[in-house]
Design a binder for these strands. Structure first.
Length: 305
DNA sequence: GGAAAATGATCTGTCACTCT
DNA sequence: AGAGTGACAGATCATTTTCC
């Protein structure tokens, strides 16, 4: 299954990254699933049979609008939590809010912003949360706004020319990838083949959802608990009626939250009106990125070099 | 009859082009 | 160079269809 590794260092760890809503909505997120490579095959097998039970070919958070997907999502949450408890896997999700820029600055460089977010994520996960000498292979989702092929080409060619042939990746990003984070190889894969990528998609989507729909989620919780009273009949405003897909996703969010509480994983939902892990050492880490300065936000495309 | 899956429609955001 | 317009893609929602 593992083909000829063209690198000179043995890969020890592997990561799967997926972007959720990277170009739409108020909240955007980046999910990263990391694990030692020795668990890769068994995890894949486990997830494969798990999805087959649920009769799902390919899980996508966007497609959760029925009971079938809900069950699959809950199973995948359970799977990830179990592995994370045993220190066999980490899930890190970086979330950021672009509401400040509601004026929609033309030319805001979302791609460069994404690059910055990847940098934060890599620095805080691959180096700080795993052994320092780990050698990584990274699998980004193949549908992305990010030109990974270019970076991979730069990794392959050891004699990197640092000229501005690709202005998008100036600033030494690609060099850092290799030297600073120990990323030896980047190979884009389809989420259809790599089920752990779907885990990344699930958690990235869940994180964004928890923030965007938190108000409605609370209302939904109240509705659930007071279902026997006849209060709900009068409140037919738009806020009060979750759509079909929302209904399913709320249930996923709730079971996930309950299980985290039960196992004391340090994931909070209520206090931040969205998923968040105060202590990043925990293996399931939701991290809200908050820019320090107003100028710290999304870079702007420079039309001239 | 009810629930789940599939299909079609609408809405939003993005990109590219053109005109001033 | 900047603003405006049109086309395109993705996602969500509602309706229809099918199966148990």
């Amino acid at each position: 299954m593992v083909g000829a590794i063209m690198t000179n260092q043995t890969i020890t760890h592997i990561g799967f990254s997926d972007e959720s809503n990277w170009n739409t909505g108020r909240f955007r997120s980046l999910g990263l699933v990391t694990l030692p490579i020795c668990h890769l095959d068994s995890f894949n097998r486990e997830l494969c049979s798990l999805l087959r039970e649920s009769q799902i070919h390919e899980f996508k958070w966007n497609k959760v609008n029925g009971a079938k997907e809900r069950f699959a999502a809950q199973k995948m949450c359970h799977f990830a939590i179990e592995k994370a408890r045993n220190d066999q896997l980490r899930v890190d999700v970086l979330i950021w809010n672009i509401q400040d820029s509601r004026h929609s600055i033309k030319g805001r460089d979302d791609v460069a912003n994404l690059e910055r977010m990847y940098y934060h994520l890599f620095r805080n996960v691959m180096r700080a949360r795993w052994p320092n000498n780990a050698v990584w292979r990274l699998h980004p989702d193949e549908h992305t706004g990010f030109d990974w092929k270019t970076i991979q080409d730069c990794l392959k060619a050891k004699s990197v020319t640092f000229k501005e042939e690709h202005p998008l990746f100036s600033g030494g990003f690609r060099v850092r990838l290799h030297q600073e984070f120990g990323i030896e190889e980047i190979r884009q894969v389809s989420s259809q083949q790599h089920l752990l990528l779907q885990i990344a998609d699930l958690f990235a989507g869940l994180a964004v959802f928890s923030y965007e729909k938190y108000e409605k989620y609370e209302q939904w919780i109240n509705t659930q608990s007071s279902q026997l009273t006849l209060f709900g009949n009068e409140q037919h405003s738009a806020n009060e009626s979750p759509t079909r897909s929302e209904n399913e996703r709320f249930q996923v969010l709730k079971t996930f939250d309950d299980r985290c509480k039960q196992l004391k994983l340090g994931v909070s939902l209520k206090s931040n009106r969205g998923l968040r892990t105060p202590d990043p050492n925990n293996p399931i880490n939701f991290w809200m990125y908050e820019p320090q300065h107003p100028e710290d936000r999304a870079p702007v495309k420079n039309t001239k070099s």
